[in-house]
Design a binder for these strands. Structure first.
Lengths: 329, 329
DNA sequence: CTGTTAGCGCATTCAG
DNA sequence: CTGAATGCGCTAACAG
């Protein structure tokens, strides 16, 4: 670790460290002679400023922490892409970590970020309000994504799940479907809960009977859930899965069972991940990367002292594809 | 930022900062009385150690930098998943950044990590050897993924592209295909180059004629490339795209053109991203997350002083699906 | 315009 | 077993 420091540069250029610091940062006022000598020394020595030390002295790290639950392939990729885009626009780096399951481990993970980031964005749809408030670092700017509402000085972004689920049910009913099975997400997940509740409401409004099977947001559970419905002998003409992954699992299980989609059974999902587009699955579009981008924007605004922002609700839009309409792309 | 420091804890517990430091870290030797007072103060004050300051003093950050080229959805997600897994196993955090296009910007991005990470892993398939060596930070442990070989003290992981491409061509020929179009990746990408070269070699070995169209690794370019071949009136009975994305684009273009797959034209890709599995595309499997994991293992071994590792070559395996075989899943 | 000095928050000798 | 002092690399007053 024989690394060259600002002192080495100063010595070589025969100036003080203050002068070196000046030419590196906002060149306040340095004579051209000094500036040249310093730049010469910097490149001859191959000096690169030590960001850690800089942060300590400035009380500013130029990094923001990102805590996400267990990585869900496409969703994860998209949200990070949006964040990275906005972060690099502001000259910030992203410090990534996944939120461990236990409340205690989650705490530790959060604490590990103290002193390394200026703020953080966290996505924790599975924590209840109490766990959330206990876990959240007190004196740190934080914006929440898809988490339970939190009193406290943090911004938050939510997906309007009720709207999305209503769009789906109404579309299905408009297509003449009467027996709509809902494959629910994890019971402790707030998005899954909201989608389920909105499904029940919409179904009731249409005077239909709800049929709910449990899933866990993973592809396999879509197939498992569908198998259970078939085994039970339940009659149905549509499936509304709480996310695209499960819709895909159900879709494939239907094909395997020789049931034709959409003529016998229609299939819909939620999220509009890339996979859904390529498999032609009707769903509601959540602009995932945009959510990541907005989360960082809110955070930067807060860091710039712009007070706290109001919660944002992102409304998904219906995207009709071939799993609900005969002659669609 | 009225944050509580170790000094506040010391004052409250009526001990010295040294003692506080001792109970926080390896409890060398502290009386139970002191330990209790300190722990009491810590929790009553809600003290969390400042990781930045800690790093400075220890000359160790417990973070590793990850530089990836423009984020390619599924590939990105998978490789980061593998890295995160291995990193958290060792108590490390991941500092993410994408490699900017320009050589100069790449430099800056790299420099921004100085003093924030203990080492880094970088993926830069588009840089030539010279650019790579200029960009690489001199005194920093680094492991390269899918990049051109580099003399110098860094480990590296490569995909055995020649092997993968050969598997594909041999499989296609074994299925009776004689006119195999190759949709190539970006010309400056080392993986694309190796796949193309191996394609040419294998085609020549079978006494066939090569047909090459240019692509850029994105889905759309698969469709564009295919359209060009059709427009040229070239006869062909198989398409070998240099990655799965382009295979998907070509696959969809074929369907749209009313050409049946695989009876008239077979389609193959490279990588085995999740999408390929769900669309039933024949490809070669690159265990992406495993590569991310191995990269970090190599880095940790180097950091632990274990000298430099030899380059690793990961051999992909053929995965036959329905775009090349009539009755396959 | 330039150099000296005092921290940023923490770990760690070195005495006691 | 415990405290006082020193330094990690850098920035920011404060004097010249």
């Amino acid at each position: 670790m024989a690394n060259v420091t600002i002192r080495d540069v100063a010595r070589q250029a025969e100036v003080s460290v203050a002068s070196v610091s000046r030419v590196i940062n906002g060149g306040d006022s340095v004579s051209d002679a000094v500036r040249d000598r310093v730049n010469g020394a910097i490149s001859s020595l191959g000096y690169v400023p030590h960001a850690g030390a800089r942060s300590l002295s400035l009380a500013r790290t130029n990094a923001i922490g990102v805590m996400l639950p267990a990585v869900h392939g496409e969703f994860f990729s998209e949200i990070v892409r949006g964040m990275d885009q906005e972060a690099s626009r502001h000259g910030y780096l992203l410090l990534l970590s996944n939120l461990p399951a236990g409340s205690r481990q989650a705490q530790d993970a959060l604490n590990a970020m103290r002193g390394r980031v200026d703020g953080m964005v966290m996505m924790a749809p599975h924590l209840d309000a109490k766990e959330l408030s206990e876990t959240l670092p007190p004196r740190m700017a934080t914006v929440l994504i898809n988490s339970r509402s939190q009193s406290g000085a943090v911004g938050a972004i939510h997906i309007d799940n009720a709207h999305g689920a209503t769009l789906i049910v109404d579309h299905l009913v408009a297509q003449g479907r009467r027996s709509i099975v809902h494959i629910a997400g994890p019971h402790d997940n707030v998005d899954a809960q909201e989608r389920l509740a909105a499904y029940r409401t919409a179904i009731a409004r249409h005077g239909l009977e709800p049929i709910v099977v449990q899933g866990d947001f993973l592809i396999e559970s879509g197939g498992t859930a569908l198998a259970k419905v078939l085994r039970d002998g339940t009659k149905f003409d549509a499936v509304f899965a709480a996310n695209d992954n499960m819709a895909i699992g159900a879709f494939e299980a239907l094909k395997a069972a020789g049931i034709s989609v959409p003529s016998q059974v229609a299939v819909t999902g939620f999220d509009d991940i890339p996979l859904a587009q390529h498999l032609g699955i009707t769903t509601v579009r959540v602009r995932i990367s945009e959510i990541g981008e907005r989360a960082l924007s809110m955070l930067f605004a807060t860091l710039a002292g712009g007070g706290d922002h109001e919660d944002e609700y992102h409304r998904p839009e219906l995207v009709i594809r071939s799993t609900t309409m005969e002659h669609s792309a």
